[in-house]
Computed example of a mutant assay.
Amino acid sequence: MGVSFIGAGPGDTGLITVKGKRLIEDADMVIYPGSSINPEILELSDGRKINSWDLSFEEVIACIVDEVGRGRAVVKLHSGDPSLFEGTSLYLHALSERGIRGEIVPGVSSLSAVAASLGTELTEDQALIVIRPAGEPWKDDYRFESGSIEKLSGYGAATASAMAIFIGSRYIREIMDIVTYPPDTEVSVAYHASWDDEEIVTGTVADIADKVEEIGVKRSAIILIKS
């Protein structure tokens, strides 16, 4: 018996995969990252639910090891797709060291949901740059670290390529100050794309920070810059 790392999709319950839905329904334990998972998806399972938002990495591993050791089916849910900024490889490695097999079940990325809501294509030009701030930007005491955002935005501007920035909406002003796209480049900030409370703010590199701060920055929003 192993553990399934399932992409729960962007939020709309109709966008979870058939395989993901089946595994959730059959799970004895479902571990989920707080409010980033639609509660209706959690209702698919009659098993035990564990909110991992306030748990450490080691505590989550311990939960999985204990449950799998009892011969039970474990699902660890991820918002969107498990392969994008979800730390899945760290869990797979730690569990492998303990003799536990992990399976990744892909999901519809929240970025795909953003594109759908905007009615646009992500790769109209040469490339799509997908990035997040360096460090641990989900922590409350985080201090902004740009990482490669500035450098890669230069490539994006030079090739008219789009840039998607995850986990960065709280730092929208800092990000817009360092990207090298022209000031009039279109920028969208999408919160809860595909959810009932979806909210999308559009503007430019020059004014999007003011617009986002006016309505209140959302932790789970995605920034999409399109030349």
Rank of each mutant, 00 (worst) to 15 (best):
Met163Ile: 09
Pro133Ser: 09
Ala162Asn: 13
Ser161Cys: 09
Val108Ser: 04
Ile64Asn: 02
Ala158Asp: 09
Ser169Ile: 07
Leu23Tyr: 14
Thr204Phe: 06
Ala134Val: 09
Val74Trp: 04
Pro106Asp: 10
Val130Thr: 14
Pro183Asn: 08
Gly203Cys: 06
Ile41Trp: 03
Phe5Asn: 10
Val130Arg: 12
Leu92Ile: 13
Val75Leu: 03
Ile149Cys: 04
Ile24Gln: 01
Ser227Arg: 14
His78Thr: 01
Glu174His: 08
Val30Arg: 02
Val189Lys: 04
Thr159Arg: 12
Thr120Met: 14
Val114His: 04
Arg101Asn: 13
Val205Asn: 04
Ile223Trp: 07
Leu77His: 05
Ser220His: 13
Glu145Gly: 04
Glu67Thr: 15
Ile208Cys: 06
Thr204Met: 07
Arg173Tyr: 02
Ala209Arg: 09
Phe5Pro: 09
Val74Pro: 00
Lys226Asn: 00
Glu150Gln: 14
Asp46Gln: 14
Ile104Ala: 12
Thr88Ala: 14
Thr17Met: 09
Ser52Pro: 02
Tyr142His: 11
Thr180Gly: 08
Met163Ser: 06
Ser112Met: 15
Gly168Gln: 12
Phe144Asp: 02
Val108Asp: 02
Pro106Cys: 11
Phe85Thr: 06
Tyr191Asp: 10
Asp66Phe: 00
Gly34Asn: 08
Ala162Lys: 11
Ile223Asn: 08
Ser96Val: 00
Thr180Gln: 11
Leu42Glu: 02
Arg22Thr: 11
Trp138Val: 13
Ala94His: 02
Ile31Lys: 10
Ile50Cys: 01
Met1Gly: 10
Ser110Gln: 06
Met176Lys: 02
Gly71Tyr: 02
Ile172Trp: 01
Asp125Arg: 15
Ser110Trp: 08
Val114Asn: 07
Ile24Thr: 04
Ser4Ala: 15
Ser227Asp: 13
Lys218Trp: 09
Val187Ala: 04
Ala116Gly: 12
Phe85Glu: 06
Ser89Lys: 13
Arg98Leu: 14
Ile131Gly: 07
Pro82His: 14
Gly20Pro: 09
Glu121Leu: 13
Phe57Val: 00
Phe85Ile: 05
Val201Met: 12
Ile31Asn: 07
Ala73Arg: 15
Ile149Met: 05
Gly69Met: 00
Leu122Trp: 12
Val108Arg: 03
Pro137Arg: 03
Ala190Leu: 02
Asn51Phe: 00
Ile178Ser: 05
Leu55Tyr: 04
Ile37Met: 08
Ser188Gly: 05
Gly147Gln: 06
Thr185Arg: 05
Ser194Asp: 02
Lys139Pro: 06
Ala221Asp: 10
Pro133Gln: 02
Ala115Leu: 14
Ile165Asn: 04
Ile167Ala: 00
Ser194Thr: 15
Ala62His: 11
Trp195Leu: 00
